[in-house]
Amino acid sequence: MVSISNLQPKRASSQEPRRLATSATDKSLMSSDALVLEGVTRAFGALRAVDDVSISVAAGQKYAVLGSNGAGKTTLFNAITGDFPPTAGTIRFFGEDITALQPYERIRKGLRRTYQSSLLFKELSVRDNIFMAVRGVGSGRFSFWRAGANDASQVATDDILHRIRMDHLKDELVGNLAHGQQRQLEIGMALAGAPRLILFDEPAAGLSPAERRELVALLKGLPAHMSFVLIEHDLDIALRVVERVTVMHNGRVLRHGTPDEIENDAQVQAIYMGGKH
């Protein structure tokens, strides 16, 4: 299992976590809810891709959002990260209203996401991709000075490279990597800095059965304090790694419940089995 210590930069100086960590107010740290959505709606013209969705994810809670294709899951993620801001509703992150913030401001507060189809910088090296993820949530984004080998961001980059066992590929252009390696790099980038909540958008897509099993183990092994919200079509994966589930259908919330409740829900089964709904 992955321990908390494994997700902290190992070779960094004692001050490094502070330098790399995103700012968090005492108030937000005390909040027991990591993410609260209240009546979030995202409309594209007349189409309400996400319609009045309310969800509450507790700090440290592992959460899944399920639904068939077109249910609005990824649009919901986009609303949370600000890629496509909600047209109505409120989003609170550790007690702070982030509805009107720019995507980069939300990320700096400890929110992370991975994309359904890998959005990586294919003309840059593996190392540069991770380095950007580290710098994006750290300091020196506008630096005109190359970071020295002992710079905290370099150490953190090497640490993630080492952790995801891609040291030997660090100078490889990402466009040359295999699909599984790109998925892995995506998740490695989400671990940069000090994530407090990660949105995983179908992390198992395109992985082999063996890789999926290991992904489950990885998700289960994430630190207790770290929340995540998972979008996954594979119910076997989703229901094994989360504590709470929301099922969406046609942009609206169909059910909230525990994995057991959802698994045994007749309507959910009907949707997933293609029955009438």
């Binding site: 980069y104 700096r108 959005l119 003309e123 840059l124 540069d128 710098r135 994006g136």
Partner: peptide
Amino acid sequence: IALQGTRDNARRMNSLGF
């Protein structure tokens, strides 16, 4: 490096905190 990132995928750069 960040500038090249914005050239290749501005949306992703935003989601990395830039």
